[in-house]
Every structure is written in C-alpha cells, then in structure tokens.
Amino acid sequence: KVTYHVPNEEFARKLYKKAVDANLNVEIRVENGQFIIHIE
C-alpha cells in the first residue's frame, strides 16, 4: 500500500489514471489543499 501527497491536481489525475489502468485499487481525497492518493 502506497500513499502519495500531491500538491498538484494535474499530477494527481495522471497518477490516478495510471493506477486505474494497472487495475490497482485507488482512493483519492483532498486534505488541506493536497491530494492524498492511496494505492493498493
């Protein structure tokens, strides 16, 4: 399980798409202006 803290929405979207394309379980949320992405 990996967690990324991404300040940039564009990068967060790319990361999310890559994980989904790889059939990984992804959860994304915004906290204090940062995008928190959990990948399992």
Rank of each mutant, 00 (worst) to 15 (best):
I37N: 00
I39E: 01
H5Y: 14
N23Y: 14
E10P: 01
Y4W: 10
H38C: 12
E9G: 03
N25I: 13
N8C: 15
A22E: 05
V30G: 02
E40V: 12
N32C: 14
A22W: 14
N32T: 03
Y16Q: 08
N23A: 08
N8E: 07
Y4E: 05
V2S: 08
I36Q: 04
F35A: 01
H5M: 13
T3C: 15
I37P: 00
R13M: 13
N8H: 04
R13V: 04
V2P: 08
D21L: 11
N8A: 04
K17W: 09
I36T: 05
P7R: 12
V20I: 12
N23T: 08
Q34M: 15
E9L: 10
R29C: 11
K1I: 07
K17T: 04
A12P: 02
I39T: 01
V20Y: 06
K18L: 14
I39D: 00
P7T: 15
K18Y: 13
N32I: 08
F35S: 01
F35C: 04
R13G: 03
G33Y: 07
L15F: 05
V6Q: 03
K18P: 02
V20W: 06
N8R: 01
K14P: 03
D21R: 12
T3Q: 09
A12E: 03
D21Q: 12
R13T: 04
F35M: 04
G33I: 09
V6D: 10
H5R: 09
K18V: 09
N32L: 05
K1E: 07
K1V: 09
N25P: 04
V30E: 11
H38R: 12
R29M: 06
I36A: 02
N8V: 06
I39N: 00
L15M: 06
E31G: 04
A19I: 11
Q34A: 09
E27L: 08
V20N: 02
V30C: 14
E10V: 03
N25Y: 12
P7I: 14
R13H: 06
E31M: 07
V2C: 15
K18M: 14
G33T: 02
A12D: 02
R13W: 11
N23M: 11
A22V: 09
N25T: 12
V6W: 08
Y16I: 13
P7S: 14
N32M: 05
K18Q: 13
G33K: 02
I28H: 00
L24D: 01
K18I: 13
F11D: 14
I36S: 04
E40N: 12
F35Q: 01
K17Q: 13
K17E: 13
N32H: 07
E27Y: 09
V6E: 05
H38M: 15
Y16E: 06
L15W: 04
L15N: 03
F35E: 00
R29P: 00
E9S: 03
N23W: 15
Y4H: 10
A19H: 04
E9P: 04
H5S: 06
E27S: 13
L24F: 07
Y4L: 14
F11H: 08
L24P: 00
K17A: 11
F35K: 00
F11P: 01
K1C: 15
F35V: 09
A12H: 03
R13N: 11
T3A: 06
K1W: 15
V20H: 06
E9K: 04
Q34L: 12
E31P: 01
N23K: 10
E40G: 09
I28W: 05
V26R: 00
L24E: 01
V2W: 13
G33N: 04
D21A: 10
Q34T: 10
E27H: 10
I28S: 00
E10Q: 05
V26K: 00
V2M: 09
T3E: 10
A19Q: 02
N25D: 08
K1T: 09
F35D: 00
F11L: 14
I37Q: 00
F35L: 08
H5W: 14
V30M: 11
I37C: 01
R13S: 03
I28L: 11
Q34R: 08
H5G: 03
N8K: 02
K18C: 15
F35R: 00
N23Q: 10
K18W: 15
A22S: 07
E9H: 04
E31S: 07
I39R: 00
V2H: 14
Y16P: 03
I36G: 01
A19T: 02
D21F: 10
A12R: 04
N32G: 06
L24H: 02
F11Y: 12
I36N: 00
I39V: 05
A22G: 07
V26W: 02
V20D: 02
Y4T: 07
E10A: 07
T3G: 04
R29Y: 12
E40W: 15
A12F: 12
V20E: 03
I37L: 06
A22I: 14
E31H: 08
L15Y: 03
H38D: 13
V30P: 01
E9V: 04
F35I: 10
F11Q: 13
D21Y: 08
Y4G: 06
K14H: 09
G33R: 01
I39P: 00
N23E: 06
I37W: 01
E40D: 10
I36W: 05
I37D: 00
V2K: 12
V20T: 07
P7D: 15
I28Q: 00
I36V: 09
A12W: 13
K18T: 10
V20R: 10
I39Y: 02
V26Q: 00
E9Q: 05
N8S: 10
N23I: 15
A19N: 02
E40L: 11
F35P: 01
V30S: 05
Y16G: 05
Q34P: 01
E27M: 07
E31N: 05
E10I: 06
P7L: 14
F11G: 05
